[in-house]
Structures are given as C-alpha cells and as structure tokens.
C-alpha cells in the first residue's frame, strides 16, 4: 500500500490540489449565492456597475423601490 502511495505520490498530490481548488470555487460560488452578494457570478465588490445591481445585494432597496410603485 505504502509502496503504491509512494509510487503515485505526484498523482495524489496534484489530484488533491485540483479537488481542493474545485471545492473552493464551488464553496465560494455557493456562499456568494446564499448571501445574495452576486448577481452575475463575480461579486459586487469588484464590479464597476454594482450600484445598478445593489437592489439584489441589499434587499432593503427592493422595499424602497416597492414604495415608489
């Protein structure tokens, strides 16, 4: 068993890095989705046009908008 692991150490490490990267990406996307901080998959913080989407980031704007209509 140990000999197998030692022989395939490169595969195991690279696969592990890949799995962790993918998990981190999925976790980040799910977190963004749950917190409502992203309407387009890239987050409001780095978005130049975030003010236009802020109703989605900040639900209180929806309430303000509904007061208007």
């Amino acid at each position: 068993m140990l000999a197998y692991i030692a022989a395939h150490m490169g595969y195991i490490v690279v696969t592990l890095i890949l799995v962790l990267t993918v998990a981190a990406v999925i976790f980040g996307m799910v977190k963004d989705h749950k917190t409502g901080s992203s309407g387009c998959g890239c987050g409001c913080k780095g978005c130049a046009n975030a003010p236009y989407c802020h109703p989605y980031c900040h639900p209180q704007k929806d309430a303000e908008a509904s007061k208007l209509t």
């Binding site: 309407g39 890239c42 130049a48 046009n49 975030a50 236009y52 989407c53 109703p55």
Partner: peptide, 10 residues
C-alpha cells in the same frame, strides 16, 4: 456593454 446583469437591473 460591461455586463448584462447590471444593465438589466438599471
């Protein structure tokens, strides 16, 4: 022209 999502929101 930057991103459609804020465009639609606007």
């Amino acid at each position: 022209t930057g991103c459609g999502v804020p465009g639609i929101m606007a």
